[in-house]
Simulated scan of single mutants.
Amino acid sequence: MRRQINRILCATDFSRFSQEVVNYGIQLAKEFHATLYICHIVDVPTVSVYGEAVIGPIEHQNRFMEYARQEIENLVGDESIEYQPLITLGIATDEITRLARENIVDLVITATHGRSGLKRFFLGSVTERLMRTLPCPLLVLRGMEEGASPEKPQKFPFKRILVGCDFSADAAKAFDYSLSMAQEFESELHLVHVVEPSGYKDLFKLPAESGDKFKQDLYDMINDKLMAMVPKDALSWITLKTKLLVGKPYDELVRYAEINDIDLIVVGIRGYGMVEELLVGSTTDRVVRQSPCAVMSVSAK
């Protein structure tokens, strides 16, 4: 099923990575002939980015809003594209989700921020919360750790797209979006299924000959299922590659992306309870944190 992208929302916090995030939004909007919204959320209690302390928040709101409009205009620069700035006050996750719903957005673009350990345990991140609250896919660009040297620019357009396939409802929707992207950019499409050894403990108890046959049968079955996901007519405009890997899904997907010089990873996301999310995280969260390239998360909801 072809997924249309008619409205794109690009979220910026005016960090040093903001220009690349906005550039991605501009290029995608041009490619899909989409409406572009560029949003910034003013969080009044934490306004160091605006260069001054806040004594009377209400008095300074207009100044902050005007500053944000000017910064967005500077980020767009001379690009010949129609865009609409969206500037509001509040909590970033809540406001970005609200704006995406109100404007019937098809794709949100943001970037990760370096955070690990206890800080992530207690606070999570805006990106990880957005993956669970947005009504549309989230395209996450890899940001930089504070104090780190700049990384090489992330690639556009996406010529090699990897989609993690576990045959669930969320993975099926992720595949739809990856197929649409592959069609738009005439990309290589890599369908990868990861088998976790813990799910096949009995396999390792079989005699060598029986075990090898079982593994080959399993590979053939999964490869057939992966191939069956792709409409036959799509094979005329994409280069399709399938792969069965063994290990932890997030480790194997990231490793595969690094080895094969992938430009975009597309993964589905399913809901998690608070305790599970804090203590364990999900495959999608971990792929986003460790990926060498952009990641699109897609919810089945």
Rank of each mutant, 00 (worst) to 15 (best):
H113A: 05
D233P: 12
P150C: 05
V108N: 06
L123Q: 13
F156R: 06
P45T: 10
D251T: 11
M221H: 13
A34F: 03
A11P: 05
V163E: 06
Q61A: 07
Y177K: 02
P231T: 03
E209F: 09
R270C: 06
D233R: 14
L235D: 00
T127S: 03
A234H: 11
M227A: 13
D106T: 01
V194E: 02
V246Y: 02
Y37N: 03
D170R: 03
C136G: 05
P45E: 08
K155D: 02
D176K: 07
V54T: 12
C293K: 04
L130F: 09
E31W: 06
A234Q: 07
D220S: 00
V49D: 07
S236L: 12
G281T: 00
R115Y: 11
M229L: 15
R132Q: 10
Q84H: 14
H60G: 12
Y256G: 07
M227Y: 03
I58H: 14
E252F: 08
I262M: 11
V267Q: 10
M131R: 01
I96H: 02
I5G: 02
A172Q: 14
L138Q: 00
K119V: 10
M274Q: 15
L253Q: 02
D94Y: 09
V246P: 04
I81D: 05
E71T: 13
A300T: 07
V76T: 06
I104T: 14
R101N: 13
V21Q: 01
D176L: 05
P57S: 01
E73I: 08
I265S: 03
R270M: 12
L203W: 10
K215T: 12
A148G: 10
I222M: 00
T35F: 09
F17P: 00
D13I: 06
Y50K: 05
E145Y: 06
R2P: 13
K225F: 10
I161G: 02
S236E: 13
V288F: 05
D251H: 15
Q4G: 00
T133C: 09
S180H: 05
S236W: 12
K205N: 08
L123E: 09
A34H: 10
E66Y: 13
F17M: 06
E258T: 12
A34R: 02
P137H: 06
S18M: 10
T127M: 08
E102M: 10
R101I: 10
L130H: 08
Y250C: 09
R286Q: 14
E184M: 14
L218Y: 03
L191Y: 08
C293M: 02
H40D: 02
G117R: 11
R142W: 08
E184F: 13
T88D: 15
Q183K: 15
Q154N: 07
G51E: 07
M229G: 05
A100N: 07
G124C: 09
G143D: 08
P197T: 01
K301Q: 14
A111F: 04
L9S: 07
D217E: 15
V44G: 00
D261M: 09
Q183Y: 13
T283L: 10
Q27K: 15
F64N: 04
L134D: 00
I259G: 04
G147V: 00
I5M: 12
M1Q: 13
I41E: 01
G51V: 10
V47N: 11
P135E: 08
F158A: 05
S198P: 04
